[in-house]
Structure formats: C-alpha cells, structure tokens
Design a protein around this nucleic acid. Structure first.
Length: 438
RNA sequence: CGGGGCGUAGCGCAGCCUGGUUAGCGCGCCAGUUUUGGGUACUGGAGGCCCCCGGUUCGAAUCCGGGCGCCCCGACCA
C-alpha cells in the first residue's frame, strides 16, 4: 500500500478523551474513530490489525478442534426466556422491539443461540463431543464505557461452546480450550496468566480468566511470583495428549483475581505473592447443564436415556486485544507491533521523493516485497524525513526500510528494527532476503 | 444512577467571569518556495449554525432557562 493513497489520518496531538496509552495511540495512529459513546469505527489500519488477531484466534480454535459458525447479532427474547436469563440480565442487554412488536435484543453473548442450534440437530451421544465457535460482534450496554476499545459497549468477541456427554469429557474440552488460549496469546506476543475467577452471570463451577499484567488494567490480581518468569509454552502438550498433568501443573501455581482472592486466607506467604493490575483478555467457563437443562438440549445416551449435555463457554475479547497488545508493547514514540499482528511487516521510507535513483530503488523494493508476499506500506509522500520517521514510529511497523540519496549512491539501504531501534546498512538485495525469509 | 467537568475550524486550546469592530492562537489542511538523513523551514491561503432550542437585551460565543452530546471519579461489568 502506498501511504499517499492510504486512508490513514494520524494525529500529532493527543485527543483529550483518551486517558490511557492504547486509546491515545489508536486514535493518533488512525486506527479507530469513535462513532458514539463506547462504539467505534475501525479505519483501514486498525481493521488490518483486528483481522490479523482474528485470524490467529481462528487458527488456534480450529487446531483445538472447534468449528467456526456465525450466529446473528440480533436474537429473539424468546430464547432468553427459555434459559431464564431474559429478566436476569438487566440493563446491560440492549433490548429492541421490531415492527411487529416482537421483543428482540442485540446479543451480549450467545449461549442460548448456540444451545438452540445444537439441540435442534444433535440427538445422539455418538455425535459428541462437539465444539463450535464464532467471531462476532457483541453489545453490552455498559454503564460507563471507557478506555477506547478496551471497554467499549460494542466489541468483537470469539465465543466458543463445548457440548459433552459427561463431566469427564467436558473437563477435557475445557482443558483443550485452556491450552488453545495459552497458545493463542503466546502467538499474539502476550503473556496471559490463567487465574481462578468468579463465574458471574454465566454461572458454573470451573472458570479461569486470562489476564495480561499491565498497570492500566482494570482488574486487581494476585499471583505467585513464579508466574512472572514462567514460560508456559515451553512444555505445552499437544491436543492428543492427556492434558491433565499440564493443566494440573499450571492451575497449581496460584493466581486469582481480586474477587476470588481471600486476603485473610492467602495460600502464599507475602514474599511469594505479587499484587498487580491486569487486563482480562479471555474467560472460560464450565457450567454443566445450566443451559442444556432448561433449554432441553439432550442427547440419547448409550443406554437409551436422554441426558442433558455438559457445556462450557470460552470467550476471547478480540477487539479488546488490540488495545491490550498496545498497552503491553509501545514506547514514547508510538506502537510497537509484534510481527504476528502488525498491520504491515515493513514500512518503506523514501527519503527523497522526486529523486530518480531513490524513486527507482523504492519502486523496485516495493514491487519485490509485494511479489514475495510481504505486507509493505510505502511512504511515498513528499514530506520531510522527520515527518516520515515520526509517522512510521507512531504506527509501529516491525521493520523500517529507509532509502535515501546518500545510501543509494553507496549502494545501500537502511533497515531498522522498530522494537530494538537497531539500524543496519545493507544492500538492497540483502534487505530483501532478510525481509522475505523471516 | 450519584458526584465533577466540558461542548468555539479536522485536532489541541484561548476568549465567557466584567455582553459591544470583520471570533483568535498552535498543529493539521491547500498553493507556492525549499529537496531536505531522524519529530527541523519560509510565504500566502482556505476553513466557524461559537452543540441545539428558547429567553433577557439596542446588541449574546459571553447572561438566564431547558434539552442533547462527550469526558472523568464512583457503584456495576468481560
């Protein structure tokens, strides 16, 4: 993409409404614009990041054996009356009446819809277990939305639902998702700690929140200090393995949100315990038959009895992750994208637009990179170098490829790593090699 | 829902208290000059229902009433 043609409205100054760094940087980097309180439009750059995250989440869900579906944002009140949650959910649920006076709602979650889809077509234990998921917009009418996409009213969520014949099998589904979450967050460049959590309105007994430690986080959390240096993926099993040992080991290292932590009966001595702030990026629940019973989601078991299926649900805040990643990865100059989610891998900077040599070298690099399948954002604007460097730092692409007249005369270009700040001069071809092999 | 704040050009703000020429400033934007190596220049220019409605007044961005919107703190929530 050529920057001169890209819809990328960057801001030099901080908008007043943005209180935390990720919100400020998302606005300044031209990723999002607020449409109304807690509801955002995603501009091209932000949308690219959102799609990248979505894709990683999707790949890891698929790898864990979940199958992607898509259910509507608008749901009938009827389904929620079946589960008994229509009256319980309160004002967070956005309720709508259609032209026929039917009560509808904008889905804050999809347990009811998913349970209904399951029960309508799955009738035998032979078809279990099943795990389905979607990546779909949700709406929760927060009292006070804040922090940009970190706590919007409308947000993109990956929500998965597991259906099993018995609690043992359900536990295994839970552990698969537990592992999938660890792998997903690791690929996103994040360290997410699974913590014992309250189950809230979804209900159930087994539940973990996945928390990224960050000073700006909304949740207070407590954890064993061993978590701080633990590499959870080093010994992660595959999905075919018995997951119990791994699950047992990780859940055996204390971590809990402040709702769950009992300071009076702390399981750890004070010098072992760390108290921090955190951002919740995922939450998984096992809730048994809480929905399957009232909604009559039953299958015929091996002995001919109808049994209510054991269920779990598993959420990842996809749009929230965009903010969370920025909270975890930025500096004074702007965002520093992990390569896996960067909107473009390389920013190509032409320091002297109009110079025949520079234009030629840039045009070649631009074509070659794209041919090699590398996402490249070419700053071909007739701007001063400082302006270009600033913009490139702000939007945080992992690699900056700088082409200027001096270097071109000497047959070199400069490659800068946004994260480390390291700058090396090398030939155009070596730069290409380096960027295409990674 | 309780408490606080704000609404003036795309963004950040001043002006309002104490009403009175064509409503200012910085950034951005447009045109031209500059061809620039790490947030760097110069000249000129465009751009305003001063949130909305009503009232007071000879006169309202400014005072008064009502409404709407947005932000922050709290309670609440993923």
């Amino acid at each position: 993409m050529r920057l001169s043609a890209y819809f990328l409205p960057t801001l030099k100054e901080n908008p007043t409404e943005a209180q935390i760094v990720s919100h400020r940087l998302m606005l300044r980097a031209g990723m999002i614009r607020q449409t109304t309180a807690g509801i955002y439009s995603w501009l091209p750059l932000g949308n690219r990041v959102l799609k990248k995250i979505e894709q990683i989440v999707r790949e890891e869900q698929d790898a864990a054996g979940a199958q992607e579906v898509l259910t509507p944002t608008i749901q009938p009140a009827e389904l929620w009356r079946e589960s008994g949650r229509y009256d319980d959910y309160g004002k967070e649920m956005l309720r709508i009446v259609d032209r026929h006076e039917r009560e509808m709602l904008y889905g804050p979650t999809a347990e009811e819809v998913m349970t209904a889809i399951f029960r309508d077509d799955i009738k035998s234990y032979r078809n279990l277990p099943k795990m389905i998921y979607q990546i779909q917009w949700k709406f929760r009418d927060e009292i006070r939305p804040r922090f940009g996409v970190m706590r919007g009213r409308e947000f993109l969520m990956k929500d998965a639902y597991s259906f099993d014949l018995d609690p043992t099998s359900a536990r295994r589904s839970y552990q698969k998702m537990f592992l999938a979450y660890l792998r997903t967050f690791a690929r996103l460049g994040l360290k997410a700690i699974p913590m014992q959590a309250d189950t809230g309105p979804i209900g159930g007994d087994l539940s973990h929140e996945f928390i990224i430690l960050a000073d700006t986080g909304e949740s207070g959390v407590f954890c064993d200090k061993r978590w701080l240096e633990l590499d959870v993926n080093a010994e992660a099993p595959s999905y075919e393995d018995d997951l119990e040992p791994f699950f047992g080991k990780l859940t055996g290292i204390y971590a809990a949100t402040d709702e769950k932590h009992d300071a009076a009966n702390s399981p750890l001595p004070a010098d072992q315990l760390v108290e921090r702030r955190g951002i919740e990026v995922g939450h998984i629940f096992n809730f048994g038959t809480k929905y399957s019973k009232p909604m009559n989601a039953v299958v015929m078991g091996p002995n001919g009895d109808n049994v209510a299926v054991e269920m779990g649900s598993y959420g990842i805040g996809v749009s929230r992750l965009v903010g969370a990643i920025i909270e975890a990865s930025h500096d004074d100059n702007g965002i520093i994208w992990p390569e896996s989610v960067a909107p473009f891998k390389v920013g190509l900077i032409n320091l002297k637009v109009g110079d025949t040599e520079c234009d030629k070298v840039c045009a070649d690099l631009y074509d070659d990179l794209r041919t090699a399948g590398v996402d490249v954002l070419y700053d071909d604007r007739d701007e001063r170098p400082g302006v270009k460097f600033a913009a490139m730092d702000l939007i945080g692409l992992p690699w900056h490829l700088v082409v200027g007249p001096k270097g071109v005369k000497a047959g070199v270009v400069e490659l800068k790593n946004r994260k480390t700040g390291e700058r090396i001069e090398l030939s155009k071809d070596s730069a290409l090699d380096k960027l295409t092999q990674r």
